[in-house]
Computed example of a mutant assay.
Amino acid sequence: MPTLDIFLQQLVNALSLGGTYALLALGLAVVFSIMGLINFAHGELMTAAGYGLCFALIAGLPFGFAIFLGIVVAIVLVLLMERVAFRPVRGASATTLLLTSFAVSAILRVLFQNFVSARPQAVPMPARLSSMIEIGGLHIGLIQFISILVTFLVLIALSIFLRTTVMGRAMRAASEDFAIVRLMGIKANAVVATAFAISGLLAGIAGILWVAQRGSVDPLMGFLPVLKAFIAAIIGGLGSLSGAVAGGFLLGFIEVFLQAYLPESMLGYRDAFAILIVIAVLLMAPQGLLARKVTVKL
């Protein structure tokens, strides 16, 4: 395969992986920008969406409806998290919020392991998703193409929502100063619940895309992707939505191109090199690539 074709193939891989990281990082950033909370139970939302998709397909439901059901499961779960776990401690310290998110994450993992299965569960995806498509002489996996397309459509739709709707503008105002939202006559609970619902939507979509590429779901499926998304959010600047997207794509590019172009004898050190590059980026931009000042007053 010519060098240019190899590069383009790796570019597609980077866009696919980076897009998933971007969706997850954006979900984390949406909640953090309003509440100052890093929700480490975000990975369990991915897992819940994966299980929702899996069991819907096993039950024989149409594929499109199974996808919808998986995403709805993630949204409902995150709204329950917000109402039961996070709303009672909304005005608490950052440490309390962080410990609460860790506790919710641990509880959900135990529930998945005990009431579903501790082992990976194969997901009966349609065979056509494993096919290849040709674009300009480049062969791209259909799942990768769909992943890239869905990622960009979701990012565009969210941007339009935040800029053109009343609730979207309220969320943007809340990320600056919650008092402005109260002056707009919008209830704080509605703004926070909407932010969590959007994070659940993004995690659900990312979870479906992740499951479609790996073909299975397990209780720990969401841990590593969300950890990477957290790193991506830091790279972009915590509280910056555009920064979260940029950080997600940057991290995806770093991982894919290191995997492709590192000498075989050094592939075992890929993650170490990736972290070194992240540190170098943060040394040049300590607050993140697109950092912004965040004021949280609930």
Results as ranks from 00 to 15, higher is better:
residue 128 R to Y: 14
residue 124 P to N: 05
residue 115 F to Y: 15
residue 178 F to D: 07
residue 108 L to A: 14
residue 143 I to F: 04
residue 113 Q to R: 15
residue 97 L to F: 02
residue 139 H to D: 12
residue 153 L to R: 02
residue 99 L to I: 08
residue 157 A to V: 01
residue 112 F to C: 09
residue 156 I to V: 15
residue 126 P to K: 00
residue 185 G to E: 11
residue 152 F to L: 09
residue 151 T to W: 03
residue 162 L to K: 02
residue 96 T to Q: 13
residue 123 V to W: 00
residue 109 R to G: 11
residue 150 V to R: 03
residue 165 T to I: 07
residue 106 A to Y: 11
residue 100 T to S: 09
residue 130 S to L: 11
residue 168 G to A: 04
residue 107 I to D: 03
residue 146 I to T: 10
residue 127 A to F: 04
residue 184 M to A: 12
residue 127 A to L: 13
residue 118 A to P: 04
residue 183 L to I: 07
residue 133 I to K: 06
residue 176 E to W: 00
residue 150 V to S: 05
residue 175 S to Y: 12
residue 115 F to E: 12
residue 103 A to G: 15
residue 140 I to A: 06
residue 172 R to G: 05
residue 152 F to T: 07
residue 144 Q to G: 15
residue 179 A to Q: 13
residue 166 V to R: 15
residue 154 V to E: 03
residue 172 R to W: 06
residue 98 L to M: 13
residue 153 L to V: 05
residue 158 L to D: 07
residue 163 R to C: 01
residue 135 I to V: 12
residue 150 V to A: 11
residue 102 F to I: 10
residue 150 V to D: 00
residue 133 I to S: 09
residue 183 L to M: 14
residue 142 L to A: 13
residue 99 L to F: 04
residue 121 Q to V: 13
residue 173 A to T: 04
residue 105 S to G: 13
residue 183 L to T: 12
residue 108 L to H: 04
residue 158 L to R: 07
residue 177 D to P: 03
residue 103 A to E: 08
residue 114 N to C: 05
residue 116 V to N: 10
residue 139 H to I: 13
residue 183 L to G: 15
residue 141 G to A: 12
residue 160 I to V: 15
residue 119 R to G: 01
residue 160 I to A: 01
residue 121 Q to L: 02
residue 173 A to P: 02
residue 175 S to N: 08
residue 130 S to Y: 08
residue 166 V to L: 15
residue 173 A to W: 12
residue 136 G to Q: 08
residue 145 F to P: 10
residue 152 F to A: 07
residue 183 L to N: 13
residue 114 N to D: 15
residue 138 L to P: 03
residue 104 V to E: 02
residue 97 L to H: 14
residue 104 V to N: 02
residue 120 P to R: 09
residue 176 E to M: 10
residue 163 R to D: 01
residue 141 G to L: 12
residue 141 G to F: 04
residue 157 A to C: 05
residue 176 E to T: 11
residue 146 I to S: 11
residue 97 L to E: 04
residue 132 M to G: 06
residue 160 I to R: 00
residue 177 D to E: 14
residue 139 H to W: 14
residue 99 L to N: 01
residue 113 Q to M: 13
residue 163 R to E: 02
residue 135 I to D: 02
residue 178 F to K: 05
residue 110 V to Q: 09
residue 186 I to V: 15
residue 125 M to F: 14
residue 101 S to D: 09
residue 106 A to K: 05
residue 98 L to Y: 07
residue 106 A to R: 04
residue 137 G to S: 04
residue 136 G to C: 08
residue 134 E to M: 07
residue 141 G to S: 15
residue 107 I to K: 00
residue 110 V to Y: 05
residue 152 F to I: 09
residue 102 F to H: 02
residue 159 S to H: 12
residue 124 P to M: 01
residue 152 F to Y: 15
residue 153 L to C: 10
residue 100 T to R: 01
residue 149 L to T: 14
residue 110 V to H: 04
residue 119 R to F: 11
residue 101 S to H: 09
residue 185 G to V: 10
residue 139 H to T: 13
residue 178 F to G: 07
residue 103 A to M: 11
residue 173 A to N: 03
residue 124 P to L: 00
residue 157 A to K: 01
residue 141 G to P: 11
residue 143 I to E: 13
residue 155 L to Y: 06
residue 172 R to E: 07
residue 186 I to Q: 03
residue 112 F to A: 13
residue 130 S to F: 10
residue 159 S to K: 06
residue 130 S to H: 05
residue 172 R to N: 08
